[in-house]
Design a protein around this nucleic acid. Structure first.
Length: 274
DNA sequence: TACTGTGTTAATAC
DNA sequence: AGTATTAACACAGT
């Protein structure tokens, strides 16, 4: 399940082989035209054919291919993978799209649940208007977070998962950040104490940064490059650790449902306020 | 066989 | 307007 650190890892792994390539065409595979979202393969190709990729970046959980004119945005959703070559075990019926470059190189978009999508837009504003602040960017300050939480009565976890508020956090890193700050995930955002907001702010940045250093987290599916997996899975404190001891107090971690999402927490460290 | 889990959007209800 | 809930998407795994 790629979140910000995993998408960043993918970007770093593919950027060197994509920059400078000129797109001949992008085909959808296995009749899966939906990979282009709502537009037709013809229209998508009209926009990208002959254009050079001049940079590869990330915004939230989107991979951004900057073209000499315009942008391709790639969202991996849960199981999308970008491969520069197909391995012997990569079954072709999981392919949803292929980039064909004029050099002869290819980029394969493999996605066995087929939720991943490709989008084209002429400017970054298409994406920026959907997404909130970058948690590793300069706008993610303590003051901004405190003000944002004060304005909302929503439960903190679904608020942090809302990409139009903060872009890039998903189930793993929200659970980890809330545990670090001793915040129960169902706490109304506007009831969280400033001291806890301060820890949440710092912990979120630290956890994301550390995870990027370890190439992200692999629970089941995440891979990058030629089948490498993320090592941050070994640093997780609560996510996917139901029944195992809390690293702080040894109380068994529990898994509950909040806003229809599996949610991991320490029932002793993270108490819901009255 | 029925259910779950993933991220996101759209639709709907309050 | 803000918030919460649900379905839809697709499919491997249990």
């Amino acid at each position: 399940m790629p979140e910000l650190p995993e998408v960043e890892t993918v970007v770093r792994s593919i950027a060197p082989s994509l920059i400078g390539e000129v797109i001949n065409c992008v085909t959808c595979e296995n009749d899966y035209c939906k990979v282009f979202s709502s537009i037709s393969p013809q229209l998508f190709n009209q926009s990208v054919k002959g254009r050079e990729i001049i940079n590869v970046n990330r915004r939230g959980k989107f991979i951004v291919l900057e073209l000499v004119y315009g942008f391709i945005f790639i969202h991996l959703r849960m199981t999308g993978r970008l491969l520069t070559q197909m391995g012997p075990n990569d079954r072709s019926h999981h392919l949803t799209a292929v980039f064909h470059f004029e050099s002869g190189k290819k980029l394969f978009f493999k996605d066995y649940r087929k939720f991943g999508r490709l989008y084209y837009a002429e400017s970054m504003s298409w994406l920026n208007k959907k997404l909130g602040v970058e948690p590793l960017g300069p706008d993610f300050t303590f003051n901004w977070l405190q003000a944002g939480l004060a304005k909302s009565s929503r439960q903190i976890k679904p608020l942090l998962l809302d990409q139009s508020f903060i872009a890039g956090l998903g189930n793993i890193y929200v659970d980890e950040g809330l545990w670090a700050a001793h915040i129960h995930p169902a706490t109304p955002a506007n009831k969280i104490k400033p001291e806890q907001i301060e820890i949440l702010h710092r912990a979120t940045q630290e956890i994301l940064g550390e995870s990027i250093k370890k190439n992200g987290t692999t629970i089941i599916n995440f891979q990058f490059g030629a089948g490498n997996t993320g090592e941050f899975v070994n640093e997780l404190k609560v996510f996917n650790r139901a029944g195992q001891p809390c690293p702080v107090c040894a109380t068994p971690i529990i898994k509950i449902r909040i806003a229809q999402r599996g949610t991991h927490l320490c029932p002793k460290c993270q108490i819901l306020p009255d």
